[in-house]
């Protein structure tokens, strides 16, 4: 993005017009806009500007944020034409007028706060956890074994912070509310590609449907917009490959990763300090960690 290449050292204070979309569910029919003049110092983010507005100019402004460091995924907004995290967007890189709107493709709760329910619904529907049949799922005895190569097959997609920005960027979702969306589909791949998982069949069946994965035509907008480098578009294409291979009965299919073998009763070397006491007394970890 050209905006990031903005290399000059910023100094002093410039005044930025922040054009914020306003909507109050009890009094407004549709959203309007309001301009605020914000003095922007070096390094100021759009979220900082909203905090400034709320503190000094207009206490009635509503926005959502929490970590202000790009990890909680609360502050997704449609900022100057692209969906982004407000806390990770430098306001001075966007020019003298910055528009802030709620994320598209979601209902608006108030002002720039979207209701992320559509994403959460799809996310929870795809069983976003490791599924193992039998006893091991409910009463785990030990960890599963996984090689670094097997880890890299899904790790990138595990960095998703559920900010919902990719759903705002998706052109398919703009017209088809039933489409599962990039976030949920990427998570289908994330768990199905995990060598420890055994729930792939059910998960793939759930997205290999009319409003499922095949509505994606690779517009690439989700990947472009994702603030965490998760690359949902790549996950979705790899998932398509997985489904095609499954249907055709080709491709390697290994069973889920084995459970680690029982403790070999090895002796602790004297130069290695003893592990701290187990947090769960009597748990499997406790037996292993005891010197």
């Amino acid at each position: 993005m050209a905006e990031r290449a903005h290399g000059a050292v910023e100094t002093g204070i410039v005044t930025v017009t922040v054009r914020v979309s306003r909507f109050h569910p009890e009094t407004d029919r549709s959203s309007g806009q309001q301009d605020y003049l914000v003095p922007a110092g070096p390094g100021m983010t759009v979220l900082d500007a909203l905090v400034y507005i709320k503190e000094h100019l207009d206490g009635s402004l509503a926005y959502r944020s929490s970590c202000r460091m790009g990890i909680c995924g609360s502050c997704g907004m449609f900022i100057s034409g692209l969906p982004r995290l407000a806390c990770q967007t430098q306001i001075r890189a966007l020019g003298p007028v910055v528009t802030v709107e709620p994320l598209p493709n979601y209902p608006v709760v108030r002002d720039v706060v979207p209701d992320l329910e559509p994403m959460v619904t799809h996310h929870t529907a795809v069983r976003p956890f490791i599924v193992r049949g039998g006893e091991e799922q409910e009463y785990p005895t030990a960890e599963y074994l996984q090689t670094p190569v097997e880890l890299d097959a899904y790790l990138q997609f595990a960095y998703c912070i559920k900010c919902g920005i990719c759903l705002s960027a998706c052109p398919t979702l703009a017209t088809d509310p039933a489409f599962a969306g990039p976030q949920a589909l990427a998570q289908v791949y994330r768990y199905s590609a995990d060598s420890r998982d055994d729930g792939r069949r059910a998960r793939l069946g759930a997205v290999d449907i009319a409003h499922g994965i095949w509505r994606c035509h690779l517009a690439g907008a989700c990947t472009e917009a994702c603030p965490k480098g998760v690359d949902p578009a790549l996950a979705i294409q790899l998932l398509k490959r997985l489904i095609v291979a499954d249907v055709l009965g080709i491709g390697r299919r290994r069973g889920p990763a084995p459970v680690a073998p029982p403790d070999m009763q090895a002796q602790r070397r004297p130069d290695i300090p003893a592990a701290p006491p187990a947090t769960v007394p009597g748990g499997s970890g406790a037996q292993k960690n005891q010197p």
Binding site: N105, V108, P114, A169, P171, E224
Partner: peptide, 27 residues
């Protein structure tokens, strides 16, 4: 009561690519 009207972009979402990249225009 809490949520306002859905801000679905609709058809404009796929006929207008705005500031997105090349692939979105090819779409």
């Amino acid at each position: 009561v809490q949520s306002g009207p859905p801000k679905r972009i609709g058809v404009r979402g796929w006929v207008y690519a705005g500031r997105y990249g090349l692939d979105r225009y090819l779409y």
